[in-house]
Simulated assay, not measured.
Amino acid sequence: MPADPPPDSPTCWHAWFDGAASPNPGRLGLGVVLQSPEGALTEVSTRGEGTGCSNEAELHALRTALEHAHAAGARRLVLTGDSDFAVRHGAGLDHTAVPRLAALIAQVQAWAARFEQLEWRWVPRHRNQVADRLSRQALGLPPKPAPHPGKRRTAQGHTGR
């Protein structure tokens, strides 16, 4: 039996997702970026149904990414988000007793099961800026400012005498 191709193989799709709640809890904004193996990009910026907290927004965005990837024909997918909660729970590595979240997690896992191969990746927020911009755009919010690089520390040189 041949081994599965690696996640970054020529047949692999990539998706980035982010959710926003404004205020928190409040209206839901969902952002998804989908990249085909050939490099074609699709951006999705849409309002989520109802209201909820930021974790609900992230789970709705995750489900939306899976739905769009599957509809586009993806069967092998690298799925990336900056929500540790959504990535851990979607991958089945953690559980919650909160009924609203558990129901969303079940939906995410049902969509995830439709893929032949699925790799879950968490990234820091600054590495998920396009999906973040799309989730905020769905709510009519401006993009977050770019992260401040901070002051560079320089060594204080001195001579001892």
Results as ranks from 00 to 15, higher is better:
51 T>N: 01
160 G>L: 09
121 R>V: 11
6 P>A: 15
6 P>D: 07
145 P>D: 08
21 A>K: 04
123 V>Y: 10
10 P>T: 06
125 R>S: 15
160 G>M: 03
48 G>H: 05
20 A>W: 06
54 S>L: 13
21 A>H: 02
97 A>T: 11
149 P>I: 15
99 P>W: 05
120 W>G: 10
114 R>H: 09
61 A>E: 02
153 R>M: 10
15 A>D: 05
152 R>G: 08
155 A>D: 11
11 T>F: 15
53 C>P: 14
146 A>Y: 01
16 W>F: 14
138 A>H: 01
139 L>I: 01
70 H>I: 08
76 R>V: 07
76 R>L: 08
81 G>H: 07
29 G>N: 11
62 L>V: 08
28 L>N: 04
87 V>D: 05
137 Q>D: 10
92 G>F: 01
73 G>H: 12
26 G>K: 12
18 D>T: 07
148 H>S: 12
82 D>N: 09
39 G>V: 00
149 P>M: 14
38 E>R: 15
14 H>K: 12
110 A>R: 13
83 S>A: 11
24 N>P: 08
99 P>Y: 04
79 L>F: 09
69 A>S: 12
114 R>P: 00
146 A>S: 12
157 G>W: 11
51 T>E: 02
151 K>E: 13
122 W>R: 06
113 A>F: 04
31 G>E: 02
5 P>I: 10
49 E>D: 07
9 S>R: 06
16 W>E: 13
52 G>F: 08
23 P>I: 00
66 L>Y: 09
64 T>F: 05
44 V>D: 00
8 D>E: 13
126 H>N: 10
117 Q>E: 07
155 A>L: 14
147 P>G: 03
106 A>F: 02
63 R>I: 03
8 D>R: 06
115 F>L: 00
148 H>V: 01
134 L>V: 12
138 A>S: 06
126 H>V: 13
128 N>P: 07
19 G>S: 07
123 V>M: 09
111 W>E: 05
